[in-house]
Amino acid sequence: MTGTAPAERRAELAKNLAVVRERIARACLHAGRAADEVTLVVVTKTFPDSDVRLLYELGVRDVGENRDQEAAPKAAACADLPGLTWHFIGQLQTNKAKSVAGYAHVVHSVDRLRLVTALDRAAQQAGRVLTCLVQVNLDPVAPEETGRGGAAPADVPRVAEAIAAAEALRLGGVMAVAPLGVDPAAAFARLADVANALRQDHPDATMVSAGMSGDLEAAIGAGATHVRIGTAVLGSRPTLRYRPNR
């Protein structure tokens, strides 16, 4: 965080990480799962690349971003960190596909055919293969009425088939955010149903990205393989827009 000495910030992150990892372990124990079945993706949006480096020192190898304008320079600033996986988790416009395909390893927010085409073309041009998750809209109101991202559950097979057929994309599984005002456990149970149905045709699509700082336990209980945690690890988000460290 701006104004915090590196040693103090590292200690803060280490403490928060320990708490979150313990929450994940307890949730897995309660669900009868092994803790290593769940990958912690630390969402670093609005935080500096210096925090990414500190997290890396603390053993984090998966970080998430939701805006290309911030993610692209941050990924470039951390390009020297071996084994660091970048997850793009935000809504993605097709005109940003080329940029995102240049640094992201996993794109969680694929929800329409035009985006599949754009990402495949961009990944081919970059000589890379992207793992893509179908974002599922779990809102009880139709997606077109809410303006939120995500494919309707009935549309998931069509988007998944397009990803699976793409030359430079790999179908990883599904992702969702629990809607406001809806019991997270019920929402993630719906996602589990969608994920199970998808695996009938695509058995390798085993990733289920669900759960954030406030509902990771419910997500793990419903079978999440990846939880996306920001505030619980990094603290309250800065109000200043991210700028790469010089």
Rank of each mutant, 00 (worst) to 15 (best):
Q200M: 11
G214R: 15
H202V: 02
V194G: 01
R190V: 06
G221A: 15
T225N: 07
D155W: 10
V136A: 09
L119G: 01
L133C: 05
E167R: 04
L169M: 12
L216N: 09
A118E: 04
Q125D: 11
A164P: 00
T131E: 14
A168N: 03
S209E: 08
V156F: 02
A122F: 00
A122R: 01
Q200F: 00
V134K: 03
A205Y: 00
L191C: 05
A142I: 08
A162C: 09
R148I: 09
D183E: 12
V208R: 06
H202C: 04
L133R: 03
D204C: 01
A154Q: 14
G221W: 07
L138I: 15
T117G: 01
N196M: 13
V159F: 02
V141K: 15
A162K: 03
C132Q: 09
D155E: 14
V159I: 14
A160H: 01
D155R: 14
M207R: 09
E161N: 05
L130H: 05
A178C: 10
A154N: 04
G211T: 12
Q124T: 13
P184W: 13
V174K: 04
A185N: 08
P184H: 08
I220E: 06
E144R: 11
L171N: 03
M175I: 12
L169V: 01
A186G: 03
M175N: 08
T131Q: 11
T146Q: 13
H202T: 02
G223N: 01
A195H: 00
V156E: 15
A168R: 06
A126G: 02
V141G: 02
E167D: 07
V136T: 14
A176T: 05
D183A: 12
G147A: 11
R121P: 01
P179V: 12
D183K: 05
V177G: 00
A189W: 00
V134I: 11
T117Q: 14
C132G: 01
G149V: 13
E161P: 00
P179T: 10
V194W: 02
N196P: 00
A187N: 05
G127Q: 08
T225P: 02
T225Y: 03
D204T: 02
V177E: 10
G223F: 01
L180W: 03
G150N: 13
E217A: 10
E167F: 00
L171M: 05
G214Y: 07
P203S: 15
A218T: 03
V156C: 03
L133T: 00
M212Q: 10
A178D: 07
A160I: 12
P157E: 14
T225E: 10
A224S: 15
T146Y: 14
C132M: 12
